[in-house]
């Protein structure tokens, strides 16, 4: 396990808004095929951390390596090339509202990767097929359910052939009955060997699929470890408190 270079490594990532520090010296690394899950209270900095990783938010400090190569000049072509390799799934989907499902998946291939329209279309259809939405490809986002939208957004990210995916609370904006279809898509991704960092409040799902849980509070990575340890045998009282509260909630809601 330790013989390989981690696919992604970040060190000392820091971000503040004015006086307020929202991310403090966060470091983590992830190997190919792993799934790491960020947990923690609302406002803890999960979204900030994920968006700092692909520079949607510009960190104040911190270094990033992808495949052992440091991203030094996060600007222009280098940045765009890097972002293509880092897929992102948003809590509120952010499908392009003026494009059909098919075109949502296709546009990055044509306009960013420079693929021919025909080849891009085939690829897009293939990706939509993988998330079970081939029959909905001509529908516009406003005509899709939340779960379908999120699956389109997964297809859109996958079409770019990312080396790693960032998922920011992919199920939080969904009605309860639609959550499972998205979780299934993520499970399928996991078994296909995709490397992922995900933030979620779905603690049960996190425990089931994650290689490692990362507990983030007030911008600080408090504790990191395998699910069993973090959920039931955490070192720090804050982690224990959070996990017991949230597992209780989860147990109640799923019963």
């Amino acid at each position: 396990m330790a013989d390989t270079v981690p696919i992604l490594r970040i060190e000392h990532m820091t971000k503040s808004y004015g006086e307020k520090v929202v991310l403090k010296d966060a470091s983590l690394s992830i190997n190919k095929g792993e799934l790491k899950v960020l947990i923690g209270p609302s406002g803890g900095g999960k979204s900030t951390l994920l968006q700092c990783i692909n520079f949607l938010i510009k960190p104040d400090r911190g270094r990033i390596w992808l495949d052992g190569t440091e991203i030094i000049r996060a600007k222009g072509k280098e940045l765009y090339a890097y972002r293509q390799k880092v897929g992102m799934i948003f809590q509120d989907f952010n499908l392009f509202d003026h494009l059909t499902a098919l075109h949502n998946v296709q546009i990055g291939l044509v306009r960013v990767k420079g693929m021919q329209a025909k080849a891009a279309k085939e690829r897009a259809i293939h990706e939509l097929d993988r998330v079970g939405l081939r029959n909905h490809m001509h529908q516009y986002p406003a005509e899709l359910s939340g779960g379908q939208k999120q699956r389109v957004s997964i297809a859109r990210a996958l079409a770019m052939d990312p080396e790693i995916m960032l998922l920011d609370e992919p199920t939080s904006a969904l009605d309860p009955e639609l959550i499972s279809e998205v979780l299934d898509a993520i499970r399928a991704l996991r078994s296909s060997g995709m490397t992922m960092i995900m933030s979620t409040h779905q603690i049960g799902f996190a425990g089931e699929v994650a290689d490692e849980l990362i507990f983030l509070e007030k911008g600080l990575i408090v504790e990191t470890g395998p699910p069993a340890k973090i959920l039931y045998d955490a070192e720090y009282p804050r982690t224990r408190e959070f996990c017991s509260k949230i597992t209780e909630l989860y147990a109640n809601s799923s019963s």
């Binding site: 765009y80 948003f90 952010n94």
Partner: peptide
């Protein structure tokens, strides 16, 4: 989010 998603795909 529209701009964010576009940037995340690698668009300038």
């Amino acid at each position: 989010g529209q701009l964010k998603a576009a940037r995340a795909l690698g668009m300038s």
